[in-house]
Nucleic acid binder design. Structure first.
Length: 213
DNA sequence: AGCCAGGACTGAG
DNA sequence: CTCAGTCATGGC
């Protein structure tokens, strides 16, 4: 399919990313909270602390004292906020029926304070295996630099979901690859200077037909 | 020495 | 809806 050219180009350039490295679904959920505006390395430390303390478990976190959680996740930053959010999400994870409609689960996740759209979608895609395309700052930045403009998070999500095959594995890898590309070349700068894929993406972006109006 | 990371919330224009 | 301030640690 011609629409997957940019994806394939990224895959060829960076290889399979294999997101999300975790031993359980809840580990993905915890990571989704801890990684909010935080370097993934710091998240790994926090998760490592939880694991060593044998606290990497929804029931235990939901039940644990907030102060104890704060100590364990301190390396991930914003630890006071995140401790509370982590407990709330853990409580949800324990009692929620995950065999339900994706939209219903999404609304429920969004109703939790501290869970925004990107975090909710990351949980849906990487922990629950639902076909939801995750949008982040890199994705918007990349789109903007290639003439694709939409309003709000949902605008960009609809754009990707309507123009890509509805495949979970594709969504997982594509998002991870966009992040990888962004980390290297599309940080908070006006343009992607030095990006080896710039010309390629500009001329063969998978959703090219949408760009033209 | 800063800058910023796999955000979300609140309040303001 | 967009923007700025806030939350906080650690790597490069």
């Amino acid at each position: 399919m011609d629409q997957l050219r940019a994806y394939k180009a990224l895959l060829r350039k960076f290889g399979k990313q294999g997101w999300w490295p975790a031993k359980s679904r809840f580990e993905v959920v915890a990571g989704a909270i801890l990684t909010q505006n935080t370097n993934w390395r710091n998240v790994e430390k926090a998760i490592g602390n939880l694991r060593k303390a044998r606290m990497l478990n929804a029931g235990k976190i939901a039940r644990a004292g907030k102060r104890k959680i704060e100590e364990l996740i301190r390396p991930s930053g914003f630890y006071r906020q995140k401790a509370g959010r982590l407990k709330d999400v853990a409580r949800w994870f324990v009692s929620a029926d995950k065999n339900r409609d994706t939209g219903e689960l999404r609304e429920e996740l969004l109703s939790i304070k501290g869970v925004g759209m990107e975090t909710a979608d990351s949980i849906l895609l990487y922990a629950l295996g639902r076909p939801v395309f995750v949008i982040d700052a890199y994705t918007k930045r990349m789109c903007g630099r290639h003439g694709i403009r939409r309003t709000g998070y949902e605008g960009y999500r609809a754009f990707f979901e309507k123009n890509l095959p509805k495949e979970v594995e594709l969504y997982k890898e594509f998002h991870a690859l966009i992040v990888e590309l962004g980390k290297r070349y599309c940080r908070k700068k006006p343009v992607c200077e030095g990006c080896p894929l710039r010309a390629l993406l500009f001329s063969s972006y998978p959703l090219k037909h949408v760009i033209q109006h």
